[in-house]
Computed example of a mutant assay.
Amino acid sequence: MSVLDREMPGVAMTPDNIRRRNLPLGTNLLIVVAALVVSAVVVLGAGIGNWLLVVVLASVIYLVGLNVVASRVEGKRAARNRMWQTLIYAACVLAVLPLASVVWTLISKGASRLDGDFFGSSMANIGARDPNGGAYHAIIGTLEQVGIAALIAVPLGVLGAVYLVEYGRGRFANTVRFFVDVMTGIPSIVAGLFILSFWVLVVSKWFNDGNPEYSGFAASLALSVLMLPTIVRSTEEMLRLVPGPLREGSYALGVPQWKTILKVVLPTAAPGIVTGVMLAIARAAGETAPVLLVAGGLARINFDPFSGGQASLALYVYQQAGDASKYAPARAWTAALTLVALVLILTIAAKLLARRNKLTR
């Protein structure tokens, strides 16, 4: 007796049956409808829950019914495969639902202030009863602070990862890895307090006639402290994924190690490195506490990151969300949508640039 005969007892295994052992789509849809109807009758009829419980119970009934029907039509092995495939698809849907909910909430509530005034004005001279006011100053602050932080953290992070992977051996390399791991778990407010106590209260006095000064550059330093461990760890993992034969082939041709790293290893790992860098930038762009501590968060426009306080989009959202004005929540939602869109645009642009690398095609 064959395996198919054992899985479908009482059914003759002819060539036509073997070719047609697939559960029809109509039968699958019928099981879905029947599961929903039975679940609604049980839950709503007994008054023990709402539509959410109906969906949960219907999912359980559907899986049981699908297993029974598929076992009769396709066999036990195919039925188990179909059931687990359904569970995997359901898990993917459940994972996407929170993200879709966040995106829909941002778009629906943030679209109300998508106008020229929001992107072309600041909060200077805006009172509680004024419906105008925008986030131009916060957008400028975010771009400058995150840009300077990236200029500081990206080269240091990539070079540190190159050292750990290509050169790092012994106690010093292990010490560097340890401190990188420790920095990964540092709260953002601790980074802000460190820059406040070091840069704002000590170093900035040397350039400001003995008076401490808040600045966007101080916020950039705090953000670079937060970005650095993420860039080091992600770049280190990407460099370790580069195949060893690529390095060995380069060495066999007489290419020195530094040139192999520059021309072979880094271009090969570039897409992964870019992903890690964009994750670090996204985290830095969404930080509020460091900017509040060391940049102050001005309501007016300040293009100079080295002199005077600055705002950021994350800080702007925090301030507007706690404002008593009835117009503030709309500004906060639009600023949050702007921040997400800005990070998304930067990520897409960086990924497109990384795809132009010939070694990764």
Rank of each mutant, 00 (worst) to 15 (best):
358 K>M: 10
2 S>V: 07
265 V>E: 09
231 I>D: 02
266 L>F: 03
173 A>I: 07
239 L>I: 01
281 I>M: 12
324 A>T: 11
233 R>F: 03
89 Y>P: 05
61 I>K: 00
313 L>N: 02
117 D>P: 08
334 T>S: 03
271 P>W: 03
56 V>M: 13
237 E>R: 13
139 I>W: 09
356 R>W: 04
299 A>T: 12
337 L>V: 01
331 R>W: 03
210 G>N: 04
258 W>K: 09
175 T>F: 13
3 V>K: 15
152 I>A: 02
260 T>Q: 06
273 I>P: 02
71 S>H: 07
148 I>S: 03
296 G>C: 00
71 S>C: 06
274 V>Y: 09
28 N>V: 11
50 N>D: 15
273 I>L: 05
110 G>A: 04
69 V>H: 01
42 V>W: 06
199 W>H: 14
217 F>Q: 00
145 Q>D: 05
64 V>E: 01
352 L>P: 06
26 G>T: 03
199 W>K: 08
241 L>H: 10
241 L>I: 07
98 P>R: 00
258 W>T: 14
35 A>T: 01
100 A>Q: 07
30 L>S: 14
349 A>Y: 12
242 V>T: 06
139 I>P: 00
234 S>I: 13
109 K>H: 13
56 V>C: 12
304 D>P: 00
82 R>H: 12
299 A>W: 12
214 Y>D: 12
347 T>E: 02
261 I>N: 08
23 L>V: 04
157 G>W: 02
258 W>H: 12
261 I>A: 09
42 V>M: 13
289 A>Q: 05
274 V>L: 06
92 C>R: 09
271 P>R: 03
235 T>S: 13
188 S>T: 06
280 A>N: 03
119 F>W: 07
191 A>I: 00
185 G>L: 07
128 A>G: 10
310 Q>S: 13
200 V>P: 09
296 G>E: 02
45 G>W: 02
219 A>N: 01
358 K>S: 10
287 E>N: 02
31 I>H: 01
77 R>E: 14
346 L>G: 14
245 P>F: 10
274 V>Q: 09
227 M>T: 08
150 A>H: 02
340 V>F: 01
55 V>G: 12
309 G>T: 05
30 L>H: 08
91 A>L: 15
33 V>C: 08
199 W>Y: 15
251 Y>D: 11
